[in-house]
């Protein structure tokens, strides 16, 4: 017992364990995975009812509607990202692990994206059909949502980390995060619109990729710093 302890395995094992644990927890709490998808479908159902069932009109606004609804659905799922870890004390434990906190944060965000962002991107074409989205823009919808929701998860995790210790963090979270989502929304819905008219799609996707690269570089540090603040707030 008098000998100093040295970790026998590197950070990769910890990151994999974190990812596995979060995927397992999300899959056991199936509501957390399914609710954002149902919300997405519901919001899309509201628009034809609120605006007009006219396919020509819907086709014009479909890229924007699909993107806004997916963005709100992704936002809805964020509040729980760190909250259960915070409530049961796991958060302070993994912040004290002798591992780079930013990497562990990335693993959590990745698990979140795999089970919210990616499914949203995959069911979006179905909802696109319901909004009479012109043919030829479906895969642009999928790719732009998959790329975009990854950025949304990373940026949103910063907000979730900042508000995890607050009793009424949910509304505040949207206030903090939505303005930061605007560039992703612009280029995401722009990509779908560009695919509809048949021009400039690659540029949009490239910019979405660039936004994701920046978010990947900076967000994990901000998330880690925000979590440290929240557990001592």
């Amino acid at each position: 017992m008098n000998r100093p302890n040295e970790p026998q395995r590197g950070a990769d094992a910890a990151v994999v364990a974190m990812l596995k644990r979060d995927l397992m927890l999300l899959l056991r709490q199936r509501g957390d995975v399914i609710n954002p998808l149902v919300f997405f479908a519901l919001v899309i159902t509201l628009f034809p009812i609120g605006i007009s069932p006219e396919p020509a009109l819907l086709a014009v606004v479909a890229p924007g509607l699909l993107w806004v609804a997916a963005l709100l659905a992704a936002l809805l799922s964020l509040d729980g990202l760190f909250r259960s870890d915070f409530d049961d004390g796991s958060l302070e434990q993994w912040l004290l692990a002798p591992q780079p906190t930013a990497l562990l944060c990335m693993a959590k965000v990745l698990a979140h994206w795999l089970l919210t962002g990616l499914p949203l991107a995959l069911i979006a074409p179905l909802l696109g059909v319901m909004l009479a989205l012109p043919a030829g823009s479906y895969w642009a919808l999928c790719v732009s949502l998959a790329l975009g929701t990854a950025s949304l998860s990373l940026i949103g995790a910063i907000g979730a980390a900042l508000t995890v210790g607050l009793a009424r963090g949910g509304v505040l979270l949207s206030l903090l995060v939505l303005p930061l989502y605007i560039p992703v929304l612009i280029f995401g819905s722009g990509a779908v619109s560009a695919a509809v008219v048949g021009s400039g799609l690659a540029a949009h996707l490239a910019i979405l990729g660039a936004l994701l690269a920046v978010a990947l570089m900076l967000a994990p540090w901000a998330i880690a710093a925000a979590l440290r603040i929240s557990i001592n707030g």
Binding site: T163, R168, L175, L176, P179, A222, A225, I229, G233
Partner: peptide
């Protein structure tokens, strides 16, 4: 957002740090 986040924290110190990060 920055103003609201600062005010949402019970402790001055926590609010200050959170607002700085945001």
């Amino acid at each position: 957002g920055v103003i609201a986040l600062r005010r949402a924290f019970a402790s001055l110190e926590g609010g200050a740090r959170a607002a700085s990060v945001l």
